[in-house]
Amino acid sequence: MSGKQSDRTGSLLGLSPVVVQRIKKGWTSQERAIISTLSILAFLTIWEVVVIYFKRIDPLFASAPSIIFAAGQELVASGELFRHAGVTLQNLIIGFVLAAIVGNFVGIAMGRMKYLDFAATPFVDALNAVPRIAFLPLIIIWFGIGIWSKVVLVFLGAVFPMLINAYEGVRGTDPKLIEAARAYGATERDIFFKVVFPAAIPFIVAGLRQGVGRALISVIVAEFFASNAGLGYLIQFSGATFRTGHLFVAILVVAIFGILATYGIRVSEKRIAPWLHERHAD
């Protein structure tokens, strides 16, 4: 679009010349917010209209925003949504926290101790290579279908990205920083707590972000097969009983969990290590 054209379009949309100037220059956040919202609204409108108004597709099959909204109301009113969400959250948090503790501890230890690294790596690599879902039948045999089977699968899903990131963070410490610390009289302990560990923190946080994503997948899958409560169970049950409206509601809640979790960690990642994200002054 030429300069003159976009000016005219801008004023047609009722945008001030200042905003139009800025839009011409780049991808402004105003533009992004407007268009993203319009896109979502358009999608929902088309969906609703195609299914309900034009009756093009069977609502049992495709559902529709109005149906989903109604299903949502029903689930909230009966308290079911909160109950299932609560169960999922519980499984998720316990499994994730355990994975975070074990994963980071072992990852850091492996990074510092050569023999532990050599001894443990084959197990880490082997377990990491297997899609965690493959362990589910075994987990059910060992832990039944109570809370622990979910927690264990979440743990297995989340622990490896965190272990590996913590390990890389420790191993990847800039040797020049360690040398500088030694030159100024640091003991081995000083070097670990004041140089290696702080340097590893951005990696550990990245590991947490990856771990959360995996944990969420694991908890839903575990709840598909080894549960009678939780959002995963709700999804599976709604699907089995053809309640597509409920199905979408559950999926939506899971999506919200996922977005909140990863967004939250991503924001703190930027805060924690500004020097990794910024460009230098000179």
């Binding site: 020049k176 920083l177 500088a180 004041k194 923190i201 290590a273 020097w275």
Partner: peptide
């Protein structure tokens, strides 16, 4: 004193 400064970025 180091060529690459040797400062802890955090």
């Amino acid at each position: 004193v180091f060529q690459d400064f040797g400062l802890l970025p955090w």
